[in-house]
Nucleic acid binder design. Sequence first.
DNA 1: GGGGAGATTATCT
DNA 2: GATAATCTCCCCG
Length: 185
Amino acid sequence: MTLTPAFFARDPLGVAHDLIGAEILVDGVGGTIAETEAYRTDDPASHSFRGPTLRNRAMFGEPGHAYVYLSYGMHWCLNFVCLPGSAVLIRALVPEHGLERMVERRGLEDRRRLCAGPGRLAQALGLDKSHDGLSLFAPPFELKEAGTVPMVAAGPRIGITKAADWPWRFGLKDSPYLSKPFPRP
DNA sequence: GGGGAGATTATCT
DNA sequence: GATAATCTCCCCG
């Protein structure tokens, strides 16, 4: 699967699945995408459900751009915009590049917890409001395709109250870098 | 290792 | 004024 803007111009379910195993870097810091969640326009849990607002405007912009928002007044979260009104939340990475900077930003050494969760990942990569709306195909972002086809697990999304049972969460099967294990089938 | 409280603020009702 | 796509710390056992 070639990572071009066209890759993102489709249903976020497919994008969320196909992003597992790809690599994301911000200023050279990052690693393999280990966990994602899809948010669609007809999805009660999505920020886009009630239409465009100031916060979610990036979700209605160009596919292949970043949507970065502040969660719980404290944590930045990174999304990749797909078709207008839809996006994929990046929930976990396998930390591989720039470990030193991640440790510095996160204030801990435990590799398993550096990027295991959307807020942790954003902190490790130094993301904030300034990245909202930026293209993923230009610095400081860098995307690389998966080397091999990974085993992908799917299950219910995490931390939401609406449509909580829809299995729109994807991840590297049995990876120790997930924010949480997937429920047994 | 697991459950629960508290942190902290932009956004929308 | 309530809510939220979360995280850390503290307590228990």
